[in-house]
Amino acid sequence: MSLRIERRSGPVFAALAILAAGFAAEIGHALASRPATQARLAEEARLVRVLGLTDIALFTEARYTRHPSQADLNTPFQDHPLAFDHFPSGSLMPAPDLPTSGRMGFSEEEFAK
């Protein structure tokens, strides 16, 4: 009578190997689709350049979600003072992070005049 050891690891290792192969295939897929992606992005970038687009069209409901980079700085109070944010995507779309580049109107010489 021969001693047969029940090998449980066989099927489990096979399953892990399949998963690992799937994982490797995904990385391969991401690498293989890179040229097509690049061509598509180049065309999209051309449109951006030609049309002068500034923002992505993910949330189209309000101007501060459609064009966050161009939005007014009073974004949170869009409709009237103390107005609550009207659209739920406001929670996914933070207020624009633009440094103020303005200045208070006059210099010392101007003031002396």
Partner: peptide
């Protein structure tokens, strides 16, 4: 292909 930038555009 360019929907992320142009979905709601009217030129």
């Amino acid at each position: 292909d360019s929907a992320l930038m142009t979905a709601d555009l009217v030129l």
